[in-house]
Design a protein around this nucleic acid. Structure first.
Lengths: 199, 199
DNA sequence: CTGCTTCCATACGCTTCAGTATGGGGGTTA
DNA sequence: TAACCCCCATACTGAAGCGTATGGAAGCAG
C-alpha cells in the first residue's frame, strides 16, 4: 500500500536488519518482560517490521532465543575475564565485584528473567554455566584469602545467594534500589559481614 | 454423544468439585510448572473434567489465581504466626527458622514461581506482603538480640536474600539439595556466619 | 411425578502466536 | 537492460487457550 513510510530508521544508517539486531532486541525484551514475552510477532512490531524479516534470518523462535542467550553468556564471561585481569588483592577484588554488580543493570535483569525458567532446555544449561562460573570466581578469591577449598565454596555460595536474592527483592520493590543511601549502607553491610570479616 | 463414560471419579467419594479443589490444584501446578502454565483447560484435563465445571465455580482465570494466592498467603502467615508463638530465645528461633525453611517444599516452590512475575498486578502485592512479613519477622528477632532497628533490618535482609538466592540456585541445580550432607554443612555455615556470630 | 437447583459436558466464536508460502521491490552484476 | 539475490510484506493454516451459550444428568423438595 503505502510505501513512502518505509524510510524509517531506528539507527540512522541501517537499512536492513541483521541477526544481531534481533538478538539484542530479544535480550531487551527478556530483560523487560521476561522470557515468556519473547514472541516473534510482538518483537517484529517493536522493530517496526514484519515476521517475514524474522523468518528469513532465523529458522524459528527457539533459534533466536538460543542465539540471544549465547551472546549474553559470552558477554558475561568477558566481564568476569576482565575482572580477573585486574590483579588487585583478593579482598579488594571481591569488594569491587560486589560493587560492580550494582551496575550493568541490563545483564542482571536478563539473569533475573532467566532464573524464572531454570528447567527450560535452552535456558537451563546457559544459566547453570554462568552461575557456576561466577561462583567459581568468588570461591577462588576466598581461597586466595586463606580459606580451604570447601569453606571458600560455601562462602562464595552464600555471597552469591545474597546477590541473587537481593535481585529478587529489588524486583519486588521491598528493598532500596541503587541511588538510595540505604542501598549503599546495605552493600557496605554485606561486604563487612561476608568479606572484610575473614578469620 | 457417549454418556456412559461420565461415571469417573478421581477421589473415590467425591462427586463434585469445590473451589478449594481448583485452588489447590492451581497451587500444585504453579509450584510445578510456574504461573504461566496455569491455564484453565490443561488444569481441567488434569482434574479429569471439563471447562464447564471451572466456569461454574469461577468467573475466570484471574479469579482462580487470586483465590489460590489468597489461600497460599494465609497459609504462609499462619506458619509465621506459629513460629512467633514458640517463645524460645531469639537466636534459637532464628536458627530454627532457617532450618524450617529447608522443609515445606511446596510453599517454597510456589514462592519461587511467584518471584518470577513480581510485576504482575495480581501476584506483586501478595508477594510483597509475604516477603515483607518474613523480613519483619527476622528483623524483630535480630532486634531482640541487641541490634538497633536499622542494623537489624539490614541483617534480616541479608539473611532473607540468602534464602531466596539459595532457592534459585537449587532450582538451577548448582548447589546441594536437602539430604546431601553438603547441604547441612552449608546451612550450618549460614547460621554460623549470620546469626551465631553476633557482636 | 414435577419442578428446581447444582454441577458438568459440548460446541462455538474470538484472539494470539508459530510457521509456511509466495511474491515483490531494490540494488548489484554482467 | 536483463537476470539475480537479498530482504521484507502479505496472506494463509493450524494449534492453544479464554470465555460464552446451552443443554443435560442427578439430586432434592413439594
Amino acid at each position: 500500500m503505502i510505501k513512502a513510510a518505509t524510510a524509517r530508521k531506528t539507527t540512522p544508517d541501517r537499512v536492513s536488519l541483521t541477526p544481531e539486531d534481533w538478538e539484542k532486541a530479544a535480550l531487551s525484551l527478556i530483560a523487560d518482560k521476561g522470557v515468556a514475552a519473547l514472541a516473534v510477532e510482538p518483537l517484529a512490531r517493536s522493530l517496526q517490521i514484519t515476521k517475514g524479516s524474522f523468518y528469513w534470518h532465523f529458522p524459528g523462535r527457539d533459534e533466536l532465543l538460543s542465539s540471544a542467550l549465547k551472546r549474553w553468556e559470552q558477554q558475561d564471561a568477558d566481564h568476569l575475564e576482565r575482572s580477573l585481569a585486574a590483579d588487585e588483592n583478593p579482598a579488594e577484588r571481591l569488594a569491587r565485584f560486589v560493587w560492580r554488580t550494582t551496575r550493568q543493570t541490563l545483564t542482571h535483569r536478563v539473569y533475573l528473567a532467566l532464573c524464572a525458567l531454570p528447567d527450560d532446555a535452552r535456558i537451563g544449561p546457559v544459566l547453570k554455566r554462568v552461575t557456576a562460573r561466577r561462583i567459581q570466581y568468588l570461591a577462588a578469591a576466598f581461597e586466595e584469602l586463606g580459606l580451604d577449598t570447601e569453606a571458600a565454596r560455601r562462602r562464595a555460595t552464600l555471597v552469591y545467594s545474597g546477590y541473587v536474592g537481593y535481585l529478587q527483592l529489588q524486583a519486588q520493590k521491598v528493598v532500596p534500589e541503587r541511588g538510595d543511601p540505604a542501598f549503599d549502607a546495605y552493600v557496605e553491610h554485606v561486604i563487612e559481614s561476608l568479606i572484610t570479616s575473614m578469620p
